Amino acid sequence: MQIFVKGLTGKTTTLEVEPSDTIENVKAKIQDKTGLPPDQQRLIFAGKQLEDGRTLSDYNIQKESTLHIVWR
């Protein structure tokens, strides 16, 4: 499925993911596209910070959802 990651600059990155992907895995995909290391990424969805060990489905993140990224 496709999801979007929007940064503070307003730039949006598209990712191809599975609902079973962990947040850690998603951060690795973001690094592949942007070069930003996972330890500098904070992902937010529906006002919650996403924890590395959880999956996208744990947070009810579905296709075409938009996550927000904040740099540490």
Rank of each mutant, 00 (worst) to 15 (best):
M1E: 02
M1V: 05
M1G: 02
M1A: 02
M1R: 02
M1I: 10
M1P: 01
M1F: 15
Q2R: 14
Q2A: 07
Q2G: 04
Q2Y: 13
I3M: 03
I3L: 05
I3F: 01
I3V: 06
I3N: 01
I3E: 01
F4R: 06
F4E: 03
F4W: 07
F4D: 02
F4H: 09
F4M: 05
V5R: 01
V5N: 01
V5H: 01
K6M: 13
K6F: 08
K6T: 13
K6E: 08
K6N: 06
K6I: 14
G7N: 09
G7M: 13
G7C: 11
G7Q: 09
G7D: 15
L8D: 06
L8S: 09
L8V: 12
L8C: 11
L8P: 14
L8Q: 09
L8Y: 13
L8T: 09
L8F: 13
L8M: 12
L8N: 07
T9H: 15
T9M: 13
T9W: 15
T9L: 12
T9E: 11
T9V: 09
G10A: 08
G10S: 07
G10T: 07
G10Q: 07
G10K: 06
G10D: 08
K11P: 11
K11H: 14
K11Q: 12
T12V: 14
T12C: 09
T12I: 15
T12A: 07
T12P: 09
T12H: 07
T12E: 08
T13I: 15
T13H: 15
T13A: 08
T13R: 06
T13F: 15
T13M: 15
T13C: 10
T13S: 08
T14P: 08
T14C: 06
T14E: 07
T14W: 08
T14Y: 07
T14A: 10
L15Y: 08
L15K: 00
L15H: 03
L15Q: 01
L15M: 05
L15A: 02
L15C: 02
E16P: 03
E16I: 12
V17C: 05
V17M: 03
V17S: 02
V17L: 04
E18H: 14
E18L: 15
E18W: 13
E18T: 14
E18I: 11
P19M: 08
S20D: 13
S20R: 09
S20H: 12
S20C: 06
S20A: 09
S20M: 10
D21S: 07
D21H: 05
D21M: 11
D21I: 05
T22W: 05
T22S: 08
T22C: 03
I23C: 02
I23G: 01
I23D: 00
I23K: 00
I23M: 03
E24M: 13
E24T: 07
N25T: 15
N25F: 12
N25H: 11
N25Y: 11
V26Q: 00
V26L: 13
V26H: 00
V26G: 00
K27E: 01
K27H: 02
K27W: 05
K27N: 02
K27C: 02
A28L: 15
A28M: 14
A28S: 11
A28P: 01
K29H: 04
K29Q: 09
I30D: 00
I30F: 08
I30Q: 01
I30Y: 12
I30C: 02
I30N: 01
I30P: 00
Q31W: 15
Q31E: 08
Q31M: 11
Q31C: 09
Q31H: 15
Q31G: 08
Q31L: 08
Q31R: 13
D32R: 13
K33E: 08
K33H: 09
K33Q: 10
K33S: 09
K33V: 11
K33A: 14
K33C: 05
K33T: 07
K33P: 03
T34P: 02
T34A: 04
T34F: 14
T34S: 06
T34W: 15
T34V: 08
T34K: 03
G35T: 03
G35F: 04
G35I: 02
P37H: 13
P37W: 10
P37M: 07
P37A: 11
P37E: 07
P37I: 07
P38D: 04
P38G: 09
P38R: 14
P38L: 12
P38Q: 11
P38A: 15
D39F: 10
D39E: 14
D39P: 07
D39S: 13
D39R: 12
D39M: 09
D39C: 09
Q40W: 12
Q40S: 11
Q40A: 11
Q40Y: 10
Q41K: 06
Q41I: 15
Q41E: 02
R42V: 15
R42I: 15
R42T: 14
R42F: 13
R42L: 15
L43W: 03
L43R: 00
L43P: 01
L43T: 01
I44M: 14
I44F: 15
I44A: 05
I44S: 09
I44K: 05
I44P: 00
I44W: 15
I44H: 09
I44E: 09
F45Y: 12
A46W: 08
A46L: 12
A46H: 14
A46V: 06
A46F: 09
A46I: 06
A46K: 15
A46P: 01
G47F: 04
G47M: 04
G47D: 05
G47S: 05
K48H: 12
K48R: 11
K48D: 05
Q49H: 12
Q49G: 07
Q49Y: 12
L50D: 00
L50T: 02
L50I: 04
L50Q: 00
L50E: 00
E51R: 07
E51N: 06
E51K: 08
E51V: 08
E51M: 10
D52A: 06
D52K: 04
G53L: 08
G53R: 08
G53M: 08
G53K: 11
G53N: 11
G53S: 10
G53D: 11
R54G: 05
R54N: 09
R54I: 05
R54H: 12
R54K: 14
T55M: 09
T55G: 02
T55F: 05
L56Q: 00
L56T: 02
L56A: 02
L56D: 00
S57T: 08
S57A: 14
S57W: 08
S57L: 10
D58M: 05
D58W: 11
D58R: 02
Y59K: 00
Y59W: 02
Y59C: 02
N60F: 07
N60I: 03
N60H: 10
N60G: 14
I61W: 01
I61A: 01
I61F: 03
Q62I: 13
Q62G: 12
Q62T: 14
Q62P: 08
K63T: 12
K63F: 07
K63A: 15
E64V: 03
E64S: 10
E64I: 03
E64C: 09
E64Y: 14
S65E: 06
S65I: 04
S65G: 05
S65Y: 08
S65H: 06
T66A: 04
T66G: 02
T66V: 14
T66H: 15
T66E: 07
T66Q: 05
L67K: 00
L67I: 15
L67V: 09
L67D: 00
L67F: 03
L67H: 00
H68G: 04
H68E: 12
H68L: 14
H68W: 13
H68F: 14
I69V: 12
I69M: 11
I69G: 03
I69L: 15
V70E: 13
V70D: 08
V70H: 10
V70K: 08
V70T: 10
W71G: 10
W71M: 14
W71Q: 11
R72I: 15
R72K: 13
R72S: 14
R72Q: 14
R72W: 13
R72A: 14
